[in-house]
């Protein structure tokens, strides 16, 4: 089976995120990058499926030049090949523009399954996976905490607030995975060495047939109006135990509908 994993490369966890006041976008240039841990989980799932059923995993990333660090990491983990959507014309795309670019790249490849993280660990929009499925005309299976493939059928356990739902579909399909679905493997040293020799295809917006009305800042229909800090947390409630501390805590939790 051919699996395409949409993998975002994000500023490294050691970086303090800054917002450019002019564009209201995250500052990505000039900071170290890494493969998003959420994307690493998606990739891990793809690798496991291919190890079991045979086939290939292609990792697909849209991002600046520094994203190659994360792409190489994905290849070192075991991805067969990679596609990098790399073009200034794509910078500033909103979620729909991003989904259009990713979907257009996916259409160029044979695929049975697309795997995405439920949301990226830097911007947390959580909508791109659904948009890609819509644009490709395939079924989105979301919040998977377990995936099983049997022939042309795919079966997932969909995480819910109280447990999980079992959802089944025909391939081709798209699955978004929860971050806890697995523990991504560390690359083997041999994998790091092999990654150097693997192909990274590069596409521009023009290669994907996308113009400035569809992608990039000019094509974005979503506008960030303001960016601000979340309000400071309110002072907590202090309960002094004078014999009825337990009862007071229980009442407090009941007020919050926690118990």
């Amino acid at each position: 089976m051919n699996v395409i994993v949409c993998a975002k490369v994000i500023p490294a966890s050691s970086v303090t995120i800054e917002i450019d006041p002019a564009t209201k976008c995250m500052v990505r240039k000039g900071v170290p990058h890494e493969l998003d841990p959420a994307a690493a989980s998606a990739l891990e799932e793809g690798l496991r499926l291919v190890e079991k059923h045979g086939g290939a995993v292609t990792v697909l990333t849209m991002g600046i030049g520094d994203a190659t660090v994360g792409i190489r990491n994905a290849l070192a983990m075991g991805a067969t090949s990679a596609i990098h959507l790399f073009d200034d014309a794509l910078a500033g795309s909103d979620t729909l523009g991003t989904a259009k670019a990713l979907a257009a790249a996916i259409k160029k490849e044979p695929f049975d399954l697309v795997i995405c993280a439920s949301e990226a660990s830097d911007s947390y929009s959580g909508v791109v996976a659904g948009q890609i499925a819509q644009l490709l005309g395939i079924v989105p299976l979301t919040f998977a905490k377990e995936i099983a493939v049997d022939g042309k059928k795919i079966n997932i356990k969909r995480q819910s607030e109280t447990g999980y739902d079992v959802v089944e579909a025909e391939l081709p399909a798209l699955v978004s995975v929860t971050s806890g679905i697995n523990e991504p493997r560390y690359p083997q040293l041999k994998g790091i060495m092999a990654a150097k020799k693997k192909e990274i295809k590069k596409y521009t917006a023009a290669d994907l047939g996308l113009g400035p009305d569809q992608v990039g800042a000019s094509g974005a229909r979503e506008k960030v109006l303001t960016v601000g800090r979340p309000p400071a947390r309110q002072a907590g409630k202090k309960i002094t135990d004078e014999g009825d501390g337990g009862k007071q805590i229980a009442n407090f939790l009941a007020e919050l509908k926690i118990i």
Partner: peptide, 15 residues
């Protein structure tokens, strides 16, 4: 090199 840097980061992660 980028590869040497990657080796450093990965072994650091394992350690």
């Amino acid at each position: 090199t980028q590869e040497q840097q990657q080796i450093r980061e990965e072994i650091r992660r394992v350690c």
